[in-house]
Nucleic acid binder design. Structure first.
Length: 895
RNA sequence: GGGCGCGUAGCUCAGUGGGAGAGCACUACGUUGACAUCGUAGGGGUCGGCAGUUCAAUCCUGCCCGCGCCCACCA
């Protein structure tokens, strides 16, 4: 016998965590998630977006993995040979930061004191101890990954893939080293890519300085800047070539205050005559635009910053070693005292911040490794143009194209220790040897120099996204030609949020096409971002993080999953609300109790049961409704419309199966017609099974549990639900006549209930008392009122019908007779108001239809069936109006 | 500056070229029978505004208002 609920106090006192981990263990033990067990079936493959090893499950992960798991479980049930490839990402910066923080907290030595080798060892130790948490958390969600194939981006195999790709691209000239301005993070002391820079709107100032012109006493040129401290690195001033104000100054020099350097005044289109004074100071070493201007005009590039953004030896003595912001104040002050500060304006502009360090990024001149993304992007653009890879929703391809068509060189070197070290070695004269190993590099160096030399390996590691870009094939064994690679590449669907289209999707496309000559996946499903109830992006600093694990603890994984699926409509952010999760927990309870009802009534499935053979109308009807639900759920998942699938299931289970079917079959189950009873029992059991199957991808735990438990008391199950085949609709399952008939019955009953409820009917016993005491006058009033009630019911029943109406009409009469004695509690005013309102509503509708039907154009151009519909509607409305008016006048008669 | 998206019930959101929907919240009534993690019923919306296309617009088009996000630029 089933308990009252699945989990919780009335569920045998077991927590969701206990029950769910038991079920999960069973799945794993039976290797249900293992790929390769159906060699004759079509493969279906998803690679997980590898969470950072430092990750802790947040709502975004929960959504992302719920969707993947729905797809995976669905396709597994449809018989495909499914591989959901799991793993984690080494997350260079994030992980290094976590471990460094830990060292700091322990009061141990810093990373640099410790030395590279020891530090990396320490990170590995950390990974072994705590790097698995996120995957354990995915298991709690029910994720059915093939854990036997778990990978890590720094595994030997994946690292080999990284080296191979690096060397191949280097040899093709698509990876190169270059000295240029990069986004430098002065806190983390590493270069970062454009994508890791966040532009943040900030209130700042615009300082206007006067630079004296050399040889022309008293003449100045005014320049403006948002960053006064950079003036110490100025090497020129630019004006527009067509700007008459400055034409005579081009070729002359300005004198840089505080420093005394001569600044060449150059003509360059970059200077915008409309902006400020039209003259702009040029600091090639510390501004991306200025760098280009400097290059074009042969200006010096003077780097005035240290790695930590303090000022270096290139500036006059008083400024040396100062922090950039202290230097800013001092520069302004000094210029002011020199009388060269023209003015200060308030100015709102964007300032670049590091997305991890949250400090202001400096453009800084360094040697870094770059990928020639433009060349790699070309095939990746074409593949999407051709439709080899489609975005769902399609709109995102626009974003993808936009970025890919304007792609910049990708800076892939990072000045970190945790990551794939760049396989480049340098000879004593700086000659570069890119090779798979130091031994190999040595050999090449020997060839080059003619003798053995001392080599030093490049200190840098690769951007984490470099290895992520290879994930769809590196996890399958590439560069080895494994059978998994042959079978599962290309993969089927990539599921991710739009925030990493550039970081990851685009780069996987580039690498996949370059090294496998095929797209890594044929579909990318972009889901919404999860936000909190206020619509804010969840973040720790805002304190609005909704912990999915807490929700799982409180309401079960199924409830959270169903919530996310039901809210996964495309094109909008998801706001996760606890109430909603609770509501879907209740849905699970409802299902559980429907099963409990079936169990109590001995509704057990029959081995040879053919659902299309049923004879009772109610059973024909539920079969049809079930089939319609099956269609909706299947189509919903196939089309990535998870909310539609979830809604269809919710409605069917609760509002069709529980609300109506279960109520309708109670008489049969308690009756004496053994044949009807047997059919109904078998049907109820069969429908319940269909529900469990269809619901399983969404709510795997509760459905699996019910599947097992319901199998105990009757026919044993052949296999676990997780491996049970998805249903196929049989011929004749949808019987339109039965559905129409039952729809009408349901409408009728609802109407009667509505009337009853409005009459405020108390318990039957009370009614009996009232009847005894009722006087003639009130009885008379009630009779009149009864007519009105009947009118309302007839309104709904104004159609010819079979079998049911007699009984239904009887029901109305029964119900109404109960109401009879209640004349005294009827609020006549309220009833009058209600009638008046309905009359005006109906009148309005009639007017509208009338107008439409008298429209010549409508009559000549609208399709015939539409005209007929409208005429029918008008007739119905007029009938209704008549009745309502009658009722109103009778009501007036009572009063 | 370029692009994307959103505005529908008190709240959160579905949805459709031809009769406005769900969940939650709210109100009333109801618990010895699957389920109070429940049931029955009810109130509540000129579908952001204006114009256009159409026989017909909440839906398509344009403009406007409000909100959000992405990219680029910013002396």
């Amino acid at each position: 016998m089933l308990e009252k609920t699945f989990g919780g106090q009335s569920g045998g006192g077991q927590t969701y965590r206990e029950i769910e981990s038991r079920i999960y263990a069973n799945w794993e033990q039976s290797e249900a998630f293992k790929a390769g067990k159906r060699p004759d079936a079509d493969p279906y493959t998803i690679v997980i977006p590898p969470p950072n090893v430092t990750g802790r499950l947040h709502a975004g992960h929960a959504l992302n993995n719920t969707i993947q798991d729905i797809l995976i479980r669905f396709e597994r049930m449809r018989g495909r040979d499914v591989l959901w490839q799991p793993g984690t990402d080494h997350a260079g910066i994030a992980t290094q930061m976590v471990v460094e923080r830990q060292l700091e907290a322990e009061g141990n030595m810093s990373r640099r004191d410790m030395g590279r080798e020891q530090f990396v060892e320490r990170v590995w130790k950390w990974k072994a101890e705590s790097g698995n948490m996120i995957l354990e958390q995915l298991k709690r969600l029910g994720a059915s990954c093939d854990w036997s194939r778990e990978r890590f981006t720094m595994d030997a195999g994946l690292s080999a893939a990284v080296i191979k790709v690096f060397i191949a691209l280097y040899e093709e000239g698509l990876i190169y080293k270059d000295k240029r301005l990069v986004n430098w993070d002065p806190k983390l002391l590493t270069a970062i890519s454009d994508l890791e820079v966040e532009q943040i709107e900030t209130d700042g100032h615009l300082w206007h300085f006067n630079y004296p012109i050399e040889g022309e006493d008293g003449r100045f040129i005014t320049v403006a800047t948002t960053r006064p401290e950079t003036m110490l690195g100025d090497t020129g001033v630019a004006v527009h070539p067509e700007d008459d104000r400055y034409k005579d100054l081009v070729g002359k020099n300005a004198l840089l205050p505080l420093v005394g350097r001569r600044l060449k005044i150059v003509a360059d289109e970059y200077a915008d005559p409309e902006q400020g004074s039209g003259a702009v100071k040029i600091t090639p070493a510390h501004d991306f635009n200025d760098f280009e201007v400097g290059k074009r005009n042969g200006l010096d590039t003077i780097n005035i910053l240290n790695a930590d953004a303090s000022l270096n030896q290139e500036v006059p003595e008083p400024y040396r070693g100062m922090d950039r912001y202290d230097a800013r104040e001092k520069v302004v002050e000094d210029l002011k005292s020199a009388g060269l500060l023209e003015k200060i304006e308030d100015h709102r502009h964007t300032v670049p911040y590091g997305d991890r360090s949250h400090v202001v990024i400096e453009p800084w001149l360094t040697d870094q490794w770059y990928v020639d993304a433009e060349v790699l992007a070309k095939p990746a653009i074409e593949a999407v143009e051709r439709g080899d890879m489609v975005f769902v929703p399609k709109n995102w391809e626009k974003t993808y194209f936009e970025w890919m068509r304007n792609i910049q060189p990708w800076c892939i070197s990072r000045q970190l220790w945790w990551g794939h070290r760049i396989p480049a070695w340098y000879g004593p004269d700086g000659e570069t040897f890119v090779a798979p190993s130091e031994t190999e590099a040595q050999a090449r160096a020997q060839d080059h120099y003619g003798k053995p030399v001392q080599l030093t390996q490049d200190e840098d590691v690769l951007d984490t996204w470099f290895s992520s870009a290879l994930w769809p094939f590196s996890t399958l064994g590439w560069p080895e030609e494994t059978k998994e690679l042959a079978r599962h590449y290309k993969t089927d669907v990539l599921v991710t949020g739009f925030d990493i289209i550039f970081f990851w999707v685009a780069r996987m496309m580039m690498m996949g096409l370059h090294f496998k000559q095929e797209v890594p996946f044929h579909t990318t499903y972009i889901h919404a971002l999860v936000r909190d109830e206020q619509g804010q992006k969840m973040s720790k600093s805002k304190g609005n993080v909704m912990d999915p694990l807490e929700l799982v603890d409180d309401f079960g994984a199924d409830a959270l999953r169903f919530t996310l699926a039901a809210m996964a409509a495309q094109g909008r952010d998801i706001k996760l609300s606890r109430d909603r999760v609770e509501g879907y927990r209740n849905f699970g309870t409802k299902l559980w109790n429907a099963a409990r009802f079936c169990e109590m009534n001995e509704c057990v499935r029959q081995d040879d049961f053919d659902p299309s053979s049923v004879s009772l109308i109610v059973n024909k009807w539920i079969l049809g409704e079930c089939a319609k639900t099956l269609r909706a759920v299947t189509a919903g998942i196939e089309d990535f419309k998870f909310n539609e699938a979830a809604t269809a299931l919710y409605r069917f289970v609760w509002h069709v199966f529980c609300d109506w079917y279960v109520e309708f079959i109670k008489p049969s189950l308690n009756g004496v017609d053994e044949e009807a009873k047997a059919e109904t029992r078998a049907m109820a059991a069969w429908v319940l099974d269909q529900i469990l199957i269809m619901l399983h991808p969404f709510m795997p735990f509760i459905t699996e549990e019910l599947w097992q438990r319901l199998g105990e008391s009757a026919l044993p199950r052949n296999e676990m639900l997780v491996l049970t085949p998805w249903p196929e609709e049989g011929p004749g399952w949808i019987d339109d006549a039965a559905i129409e008939e039952m729809d009408w019955v349901i409408r009728l009953i609802s109407e009667v209930r509505s009337v009853r409820s409005e009459m405020n009917v108390p318990a039957a016993a009370k009614i009996q008392l009232l009847i005894k005491d009722a006087d003639t006058a009130s009885l008379q009033r009630l009779e009149t009122h009864l007519d009105m009630i009947m009118d309302r019911a007839r309104l709904e029943s104004a159609r010819p019908t079979t079998a049911v109406p007699e009984g239904a009409i009887q029901t109305i009469l029964d119900e109404a007779s109960l109401i009879l004695p209640l004349a005294n509690v009827i609020d006549l005013e309220k009833e009058r108001a209600r009638l008046a309102k309905e009359i005006s509503k109906v009148t309005g509708e009639i007017d509208k239809i009338e107008k439409k039907l008298s429209n010549d154009k409508f009559m000549s151009r609208a399709p015939q069936h539409v005209i007929e519909e409208q005429q029918e509607r008008r007739a119905e409305a007029e009938q209704a109006k008549t009745r309502l008016n009658d009722a109103l006048s009778r009501l007036d008669g009572i009063a």
